[in-house]
Nucleic acid binder design. Structure first.
Lengths: 184, 184, 184, 184
DNA sequence: CATGAATGAGTGTTCATTCAT
DNA sequence: CATGAATGAACACTCATTCAT
């Protein structure tokens, strides 16, 4: 409960002002808890960032894979999942910016990334199936996943930046861009 | 001279340890100048980061557009420029990581980005020409540029991360992926 | 019961780590009681130290004066009592170290010392008798007591420090040293 | 210069209020330097205490052994040195109390003690010579030194405590007490 | 009577910035 | 123009103390 409050407060403030410009006192105030309480749940400022990352990726995957069944054509599943990814980030711009800013940050170790990413391995299974059907360019499933996530990041970044109204048509076009990039 | 030393030292340390974990004293030591000297050239830590960004983008564009002539087919020019971008970052992994980490950082204001990006507007001209020839999906030239840069960033990130040996063939395939994504 | 547990736990931890390096939470854990319980019995950290001191001196005097009768020659009584003091501390090294470290600590007020020391005034009576018999150098009984306690402390400190095996002979010699110092 | 100021300030405040009741800010203020300056010279609060101890023992030995020549009878040398020790502490009550309070403190490691005590090994040489002449009870020179220092500590403690006026006669008597204790 | 989660004042420590040399 | 010792505001973090359960 308080743990989640703190993580949500941290996410918001770190995104807006940057890690080095946010004090623990500010995080505590935003989370409406005492400073000491922050340290009851987290052992340091870096720990907070790492736990935000893990929580974030967990919520992300929960949203994305809700109602997902690995049935139907590869393309259908691809459309379904990427539509979910896009929807999630468009509905959660703060969370998206956190993901973008901290993806390459030195405070996130390999271990943290590994833990946080484990739910996303289902994407690899999808790509694996596509590779078997010779639908994709000759890359590993891991690289296909990373590439498509990259394209999505860049695209959402500008969508949020310019406060565009995103309609179905645009989303569909974007998914097509991703598909066209990796398919033969 | 000393100015450049300081910027190079800062870039290296910020990438490796993160902005908040690097002190001005460390930057001064790495640059082999006194702390006071840092303040003769830059008015604050944030100023250093901003100036690194500007210098970085300037060197990047110099490398990319060297020998570039806006002649030949759109595809030929596209291939030429993206090959240069990829080559630059593969040869300068530290600079790449700096670009990646700070692209969405709150310390870089819109003004700084505008100044730093002005040399890259040539890309927009190329995309503009492509749009006129109806080669691309219905997006603005700016969005086409942002999208392709984003895909390239994601790709180089794992190329560096996994210490892959990147040969011509792989680069060519990647450029094709980018092209396929945006072309009709 | 719990009161004593807390005092014993505090004594042990304060001796090993030093007053400033021990938290109430650690004392509570060592005593196997809750933090709140500590505050039910003591009003502050300083209070704990003071109560340890008082308990300690009380247990010490109980041990020392057990079976003591103020009869026989001064020398006989002197030997008896100092042998008891030495035995007590050799059997209770932790308690000794606490006594040594906190004897001159600013957290122990004059009042506390007065309360804690009242059982030891029997020593003064012995010295008083010795003074009357002209056995001692021209000092007050109080000074004779302080002096002999001081010598004993120094001696036990290294005995414990060097984990010497202390036999009767050594103890006898040491008591003789103390006696020789103050006697005419 | 500033280093010494800080150590002197620390000694004074630690003795009066106790280690845990003195803040670095107070030490800095007493030393008339900035807080940051304290950390330019010392890496932590504990380091300050340790360096005070070392400086203290160094100044002590300098005072004691000034003009000392290892000639004349053992007794003459003994008298000379112990008179110096007593004089030093009577003239420097604050320094004495520091010595007394921190002698058994856990912040002073074996290493620190070893470094600090090396100048006092000259005492051991004197005792060694006395042992050869069969003047002393059967103890090692090291133990003779520790014992006599203990006696002195106890004695000075009360002398300072009661603000006695100490004249030659009293000092001479005390030296005699120490001598009587260890001599056969 | 017992507990330990919650608190925030207070502390040690850091580090961007200044300025005398 | 270069330096780095000096500074103290500001921070991360601790821990004695409280109080609802």
């Amino acid at each position: 409960m308080k743990r989640i409050q703190i993580l949500k407060a941290g996410l918001k403030l770190f995104v807006i002002h940057g890690l080095h410009a946010v004090t623990i006192a500010q995080v505590a105030a935003e989370a409406k808890v005492g400073i000491g309480t922050v340290y009851r749940y987290f052992k340091s400022k870096e720990d907070i960032v790492q736990q935000i990352w893990i929580l974030q990726k967990s919520e992300e995957s929960l949203y994305i894979f809700k109602n997902y069944k690995a049935v139907g054509s590869i393309r259908t599943q691809f459309n379904f999942l990427w539509e979910r990814v896009i929807s999630y980030f468009l509905e959660h711009p703060l969370e998206f910016q956190f993901s973008y800013q901290f993806a390459a940050s030195p405070v996130l170790t390999k271990d943290i990334h590994e833990v946080a990413m484990k739910d996303f391995l289902k994407f690899d299974e999808l790509f694996e199936a596509g590779i078997k059907e010779h639908l994709f360019k000759p890359l590993t499933s891991r690289h296909l996943r990373l590439f498509t996530f990259s394209t999505i990041n860049g695209w959402i970044l500008w969508a949020i930046d310019e406060k565009m109204t995103i309609d179905r048509e645009v989303i569909d076009m974007f998914i097509e861009m991703s598909w066209d990039a990796i398919s033969i």
